[in-house]
Structure formats: C-alpha cells, structure tokens
C-alpha cells in the first residue's frame, strides 16, 4: 500500500512537478481553444458543401471527408510538421496542429453536421424559400439551428474526443499536459505526474460528459 502511494500519489513529487504540469494544462486548454473552433468551422463548411452544393462539389466534399477520416490524425500531424519541410514548406508546430485538426476534426464534425442537416425536413427549406429568403439565409436561420439542435449530443461527444486528441500535439514538441507529465515522470522516476494529468483531464472533460448524458436524456424525453 505504501509503495503504491509512493509511486502514484506522492505529495512531494506532485508539489515539485506542479509548475510544469500547470503549464501543460494551460497548453492543453490553448490547444483545445484553437482546435475546436477550427474543426467546427471546417465541419460547417464541409456539411454545407456536401448537402447544398452543386453535384460535383457535393461528391468532392464527401470524398474529402472520407479521406481525412481515414488518415490517422497522428500521421497527418507528423506529415504536416516533419514532412512538409522537405517541400520547403515549414508551417511550424502550431501551424501543423491548426491545419491538421482543421482537416481531421473538420471531417468528423462535418459528418455529424451533415446528418443533422439531413434530419431537417425538406419542407423547412421550401417554406423559407417561399417567403423570399435566399438559400444561404434559409440555411443560416432555419436549417442550421435545427440541424445543430438535432445532433447536439454527437457534437459535444465529438468535442470531447477533440480535447482528448490534443495530446498528440506532443509529437510536434508542443508541451501540452501529457507531454509535461511524461517529462516530470522521467525527471522524478515517479508516476504521480501521470496520475495528476489523468485527474486534470477528468476534471476538464467530466462536465462535457455530464452535458452529453443530459442532452441525451432530454432527446429521449422529447421523442
């Protein structure tokens, strides 16, 4: 028991590692604050193109979505960070993260939103257009709000996954939470920093998990 506490829940180690863990936590927050909006933006664009564009564009958007859902995000990130410089393009660590998540996460959000748009009855668009709204205005004010509401639990789930996925930024040397925890572990020969990182992730994500159950219960009750 004592050994267990010493290895996993060591107060002294925690105090020592605290500053760099805290810094890692802030990096994770910053990464989430960048990747979630970028992914959502990419998702909205893809969903609109794949539901409302001309036929050729729709097919291209669908193929694009498939492609970036099939490429592992880690591979994509490494390629952007370490591969592109061979072509003389250096986007840097933050650039690689931004582009990679825009592509990968955007494809996932795009799928979710596309399903949401598909769940809105065709009569909604017709009613809106019959009053003189343009297609864009109808999408913006009539279709998208309903689409988002219909797939809100999936959107939040996806957001949860995105925040977890920010830990792969460590491979491009961005010192996010997991990266810092490993550093601290290596420096102290103790697993407590890893446990602390797990707890921090939990505290960050648990509200989202609760939110998802509440939304799902509400959706069930609404049926």
């Amino acid at each position: 028991m004592e050994e267990f506490l010493f290895a996993f829940l060591n107060g002294d180690i925690l105090r020592e590692a605290w500053p760099i863990l805290w810094q890692g936590f802030l990096y994770t927050l910053a990464l989430s604050a960048i990747t979630v909006p970028l992914g959502l933006a990419g998702g909205v664009i893809l969903a609109l193109l794949s539901t409302s564009g001309p036929r050729g564009i729709r097919l291209a958007a669908a193929a694009w979505t498939d492609l970036f859902r099939a490429i592992p995000p880690l591979v994509l990130l490494v390629f952007l960070y370490a591969g592109l410089p061979f072509a003389g393009i250096d986007v840097g660590a933050w650039g690689a993260v931004a582009i990679g998540f825009f592509l990968n996460t955007g494809a996932y959000y795009g799928e979710v939103l596309r399903a949401g748009i598909g769940s809105v009855p065709a009569g909604q668009m017709e009613a809106a257009r019959s009053t003189g709204l343009t297609r864009g205005q109808a999408l913006r004010h009539v279709i998208l709000p309903q689409a988002v509401r219909n797939v809100l639990p999936d959107l939040v789930s996806n957001t949860l996954e995105v925040v977890k996925l920010t830990s792969i930024a460590s491979v491009v040397a961005l010192p996010e939470l997991l990266f810092q925890a490993r550093q601290a572990q290596n420096a102290t020969y103790n697993a407590t920093p890893i446990v602390a990182a797990a707890v921090a992730y939990f505290l960050l994500l648990w509200p989202l998990v609760r939110l998802i159950s509440r939304l799902e219960n509400k959706a069930m009750a609404g049926r």
Partner: peptide
C-alpha cells in the same frame, strides 16, 4: 417570391 405567399399542407413552421 415575396409577392407570392404559399401555405403548405404540413404548415412547415420553423419549430
């Protein structure tokens, strides 16, 4: 279209 009002069987109000 704004000079042509239309009413549908299924109402199609924005919920």
């Amino acid at each position: 279209r704004r000079r042509i009002g239309m009413v549908f069987q299924s109402f199609n109000l924005y919920p």
